[in-house]
Structures are given as structure tokens and as C-alpha cells.
Amino acid sequence: MNIHNYEKIWLVLSMLLIIGFISTVVYGATAVGIEMVNDEGGTIDSTALDEDDRFSEPRVEKVGEDEYEAYVVARQFIFEPNPIEVPANSTVTFYVTSPDVLHGFEVVGTNANAMVVPGEITELTVEVNEPKEYGILCNEYCGGGHHTMEGKLIVVPEDEFELGDSNDE
């Protein structure tokens, strides 16, 4: 088969481009340590969140030195708890699930962005730095009130943080 030399040059460059892209992503995954949302969050009976110790009462819990877990329920058309309060300079793992339809969990303007699927638990760990307020929104269509579904993530100074503040009820 007769391939023009210029086209051969382009073929090689194209392969370099592709390999370059894959290498960058691998660099992000290994050297920077960015993990994808995966299957480790486990499954749950979405009709019985009330019977689950974590999601019957959505909340933030301290699990270690500077380590927190946030159990979040995304449902038509709210996030619970709201706001989610965590202390500055800590590592926070969100566990998010839904009792009804698919939702999105997006901390606005950040890389914390994941799908929420009924029956599955989305596990997402982030590092939070200085005190700041972030919006949270649902970015997967979930019904007629989808555009009203929002919440807040408040990173408070470490000395002002108290567990239990996060519960809105």
C-alpha cells in the first residue's frame, strides 16, 4: 500500500499525540495521585436509606486526625445535609447516594464532580484548604425541579468547627 511520506510523518505525530495524552493522564493518576470515582463505595438498598446507619441521618463525622467523612443524600430536589460543614486543612471523603433518580454532585468551580446513582454509593475524597464557601449543585437532570437543587459546602476555620453543625434538622 502506497502511503505518501507526508502522511507517514503525520501518522507518527498522531501516535505521539495519543501517547502523550495517555501519559499525561497516567502522570495525573500516579504522580499527582488523582483517583477516579470507582466501585469501592459499595451498594445500598435505595428504598431503605432510613435503615442505613450512615444515610438515615446525613452528617459529617470525624474519623481521624484531620480526616472527615460526609454522608450525603442527594434527592429530588435537595442535598442533605445542607450546608455541609468541614474544617479547613483536612481530608474529606464524601459518600453520596440517592433514594430516587440519578443526580450529579458538583462542588461548583472545583474538581469535585461525580455522578450519584441509586443503589450505588459514590465515594469521593478531596483535600480542603483554607476557609471558604462553595456552592454545590446537581448537574444531572433529575426532574422538573432539577434547576433548584443546590447546596453548600462551608469550609470553616479549624478552631470554629464543631461536629453536628452540619445537620439542618
Binding site: 495519543i18 495517555i22 477516579m36 450505588e120 454509593i121
Partner: peptide, 25 residues
């Protein structure tokens, strides 16, 4: 399309990415 879905292991997502990148060719 499911990179940030729960319930799918990262390995499967990586395979999909590699195939997708070669689909650029």
C-alpha cells in the same frame, strides 16, 4: 461517558480511555 460513575472500577475506565484515545487516529 462514565468516568465519574460509582460502581465501575478504575481499570475498566482506563481501558475505555486507551481505546478512546486510539479512536482519535
Amino acid at each position: 461517558h462514565q468516568y465519574v460513575d460509582p460502581g465501575i472500577a478504575e481499570g475498566f475506565k482506563t481501558i475505555a480511555m486507551t481505546n478512546t484515545m486510539f479512536l482519535l487516529l
